[in-house]
Design a binder for these strands. Structure first.
Lengths: 240, 240
DNA sequence: TAGTGGTCTAGACCACACG
DNA sequence: GTGTGGTCTAGACCACTAC
């Protein structure tokens, strides 16, 4: 039964489900109610709920498992991890490197970062600098800015103690889930700082990856500038 | 009505439609028969045809246009062009640069290329080298290998005369449609040749993009190695 | 055996494009 | 108006998982 404001019914159901995800009614890793339950809750047919969930699954907000149910996705799952780390070794399997946190402090957002995070210059942000090491080789130098309001209490200790993907920590401890990201990629010469930390000559080519990550409602919450050493790794991308 | 070999009916329909696309029964840019027509042709319900077409649309093999019909996609459309050219200028709109063909010749495939194209070393391939220029600046140096069997009669003249995306030429003149591609991206120093052709100092960082492109049935038909100058452009990528 | 998602159908009606 | 894709429903049955 179509409702007054025109958008397809399944889109409205999708929005309702998304709100429940965002509010934490169903937490990452948990099962959401069955299609039949949701259908009766929202007073629509099962097929309509199905189409709503289809889209959420396509956007990786939930994952369907036949015979079991539909589950809220989480950055703890292997399959999800590599959606956001596209660096693959020339030989061997993709893996997660060791993270060494250099710095983690609160500061006022510079103009450029503020613009990308859609806040005002001078608003509070958390800055993290870290090095990722793969099989003993320093490979990634990350400089990260997070929305201050969402990450109160984030410290270098917390980051250091945490084993696993950083986004899993953000999801578990700060209730902020990264949904999608947009990256701008360039080749740049290593400056002295980067060269020192990554053990490469000054001026050698590095892959610069500037990422803005978004949570529910397409709100930006993270800006990240990564410098990748690509002599034994490459950035994998599929065009389709 | 499920058929003997088990796979969902809509997958079988999808395969049938794909075969018709591949055989050229419906050509790029043309409209395919309506869902009702296909349903009666294949003796299934309209909903089943719909689901098959949904997947083909998700894979960009066809595009739906409400009220008009479903059309075979083509590399002539603007919207498709930038699926395969991810280089975006820092300022201004994405655009297509001028192509300057340096070379186009047939030769025997080196081992590395043969492996990627899934042919035997020494089999015939076409090699193209070209420079792309954006607003007067040489920005991309491409080295391209094409499956010899699919591109008989491709010459430097044909390439030079052609205005528009190279893939549109391949589609129109050689019946080979690029469906998807996989890229490996690195930062590399410019060698003397590249430096000369791109007017940058030897050793300056370039983005190296190694692409393998596939046509129907996931058969590789092109290997391409691009070197991009990323001082005024960046490679755009979305993670979702 | 019961519960979940996955497939398939048949039919009604809506939104959009075009003549 | 006619034809196209898009939405929505109701109901049947299949495939997978767990108990």
């Amino acid at each position: 039964m179509p409702s007054p404001t025109f958008s397809p019914l399944y889109q409205q159901i999708k929005a309702l489900i998304t709100r429940s995800l965002q509010s934490g009614e169903w937490k990452p890793g948990e099962m959401i109610p069955s299609e039949m339950e949701l259908a009766s809750r929202y007073k629509v047919s099962q097929g309509t709920v199905r189409k709503a969930i289809d889209e959420l699954a396509a956007e990786n907000l939930v994952a369907r498992r036949q015979g079991k149910g539909t589950f809220v996705t989480t950055h703890h799952e292997d399959v999800v991890k590599f959606r956001f780390l596209r660096l693959v070794p020339d030989e061997g399997e993709p893996h997660y490197g060791a993270s060494h946190v250099l710095e983690c402090k609160r500061l006022r957002a510079p103009a450029e970062i503020a613009r990308l995070l859609d806040i005002r210059t001078g608003d509070s942000v958390v800055q993290i600098r870290r090095v990722l090491t793969f099989s003993g080789e320093s490979t990634v130098l990350d400089e990260i800015w997070l929305l201050g309001a969402n990450f109160k209490g984030l410290t270098a200790e917390k980051l250091t103690e945490w084993k696993g993907p950083m986004y899993a920590l953000f999801e578990a401890e700060f209730g902020t889930r990264m949904i999608r990201a947009s990256e701008k990629i360039r080749a740049v010469p290593a400056d002295e700082t980067a060269a020192g930390l990554l053990s490469v000559p000054v001026g050698s080519p590095l892959l610069s990856v500037e990422r803005v990550s978004y949570t529910y409602g397409d709100r930006p919450v993270e800006v990240r500038r990564g410098l990748y050493v690509t002599t034994r790794h490459y950035y994998q991308n599929d065009l389709s």
